[in-house]
Amino acid sequence: MDQLLQFFISGLTVGSIYALVALGFSIIYNASDVVNFAQGEFVMIGAMSAIFMLKAGIPYPLAIFLAILTSATVGLCLEKFAIEPAKRATVVTTIIITIGASIFLRGAALLIWGKDIYGLPPFTDNTPIHIGRATMLPQNLWVMLGTAFLVIVVKYFFDKTRVGKAILACSYNKKAAYLVGINVKTMLLIAYGLSAALGAVAGVLIAPITFMTYGAGVMLGLKGFCAAILGGMGNSMGAVLGGVILGIVETVGAGFISSGYKDAIAFFVILLVLFFKPSGILGKGEVERV
């Protein structure tokens, strides 16, 4: 029983990391149907720039703020100089552009920050919190609270704000959105900027737990993508649900079946879910137009 509780808590802490990354995918997806393969790199850039600003003597909160700003700027530049000029690009081509961007950003990070592994100090005190015999770190709590907060923000943004609704309109039908007076270009720009900022927040929150290198974005991005798909792409609640389920499946799989095969177990579960719910847990079925 003690063990089960710890597995559950571990799953929740891992899962909220995935959820946080998954959330970043939804904004760009909602604006353009594009899965942004550079999302993991946004996470890495956020964490690495915070680490190096802190090293340069900038106070922690300011460093975090500047790191988010840096990442957002990178996101804006990506849209302005790579996505926008590719006017005739289809969704698949745009995805390949984001793959190119992720390689490019990794290369740039390698040149700027080198190959070493770095960590951030935890936001607050580092004494483990005990829940029965199970434990978790205060930083895990930060990640969970951060995820909860951001998911509400993202949901509010798409459901209630004009900009959010306009972005959604772009993804449903670009031409129609343009005709009702929505500036599609600006909406895309906003989407990439926000998505990058969200990624950076994720990076800063998780760096004290998992450490960072220039190449860490790839696996984080991959797991985030899985979580987003599992929950239903573009649905912010789905992203969180997907992330948490993925995390718990992994830890329970590792705990009771085999820690060596835990990822295989997780992917197997994802496949099973997709076979029965082809659009993810909370995703709406797509209707194909003829």
Binding site: A82, I97, G100, I103, F104, L105, G107, L111
Partner: peptide
Amino acid sequence: VLIFGAILM
């Protein structure tokens, strides 16, 4: 790595 990504893009 950087150049490879740039060319692809």
